[in-house]
Amino acid sequence: MTRIFPLATVMLALIIVWYAGAYVLNAPQAINLMDPDGPHNFWAVVQAAWNMDRPVLPTPGQIATNLAASIFGNPLFSPRNFLLQTAYTAETAVTGLAGGVVLGIFLAIGIVHSRVLDRSLMPWVITSQTIPILAIAPMVVVALGNIGLTGLVPKAAIVGYLSFFPVTVGMVKGLRSPDAMQMDLMRTYNTKKMSLFVKLRWPVAMAFLFPSLRVAASLSVTGAIVAELPTGAQVGLGARLLAGSYYGQTMMMWGALVLASLLALALIGMVRLGEFWLCQQRGGRL
């Protein structure tokens, strides 16, 4: 209760500020558009400001109504259906995320077990992150498109490239986190490398894997959206954002933004679920 109540209050305040903001920002235009013969009292202006076709700031209610109309008002496989667009983006995000996580884990295993890889590869793994990776997105799409790779693959590649890093860094840290005494303990059992990995390094690293996965999951949605931009705005929430931007369709942009955020939260929620399950397996602690 001590957690929910403050959050609920802040959210409520946010919504009130949002509605107030929508009035302030939309009112000047709304007044211009209003029927000159109609009533011009405060409440009428408010009504008009909250129900514009192309508002500066749409109200949360408007966004929700709009999304509902798109999802329930169109056939499921119509490109106008936001749910279909979300599914495209989710497909990219999940495929890329899976690839990135597998790659990230393997890189971490290599780095932890090989001094040469640690010394030579690790600095580059880190440097690779100071590069704005998402900036490569249009180029990757163009380059891969030229060798015949179009559609899901280049987009998933971008997402994978984006999401491998937190996993690698987290897992290198995690696989190295057994303390000296735990390592000595395993040594007294004359433990081979493989057993050491399975019995100690991997289970210890789980506490580091899940936070990394949460970061990767959040990045994967951002990556998927950006990867959808240069494909000529065909499918996905990124494409909807770009189309909305081109044609000044405010509601389309907000709808895509909200769905993308929900998608990110859903992916993170799934990671949390996995974390919770493992935690249960371990008697309540990770």
Binding site: L241, S245, M253, S261
Partner: peptide
Amino acid sequence: SAMPIIGIAPIAIE
């Protein structure tokens, strides 16, 4: 922070 904030870009342009 976990959301794709980058998507706000077209709105920021408006």
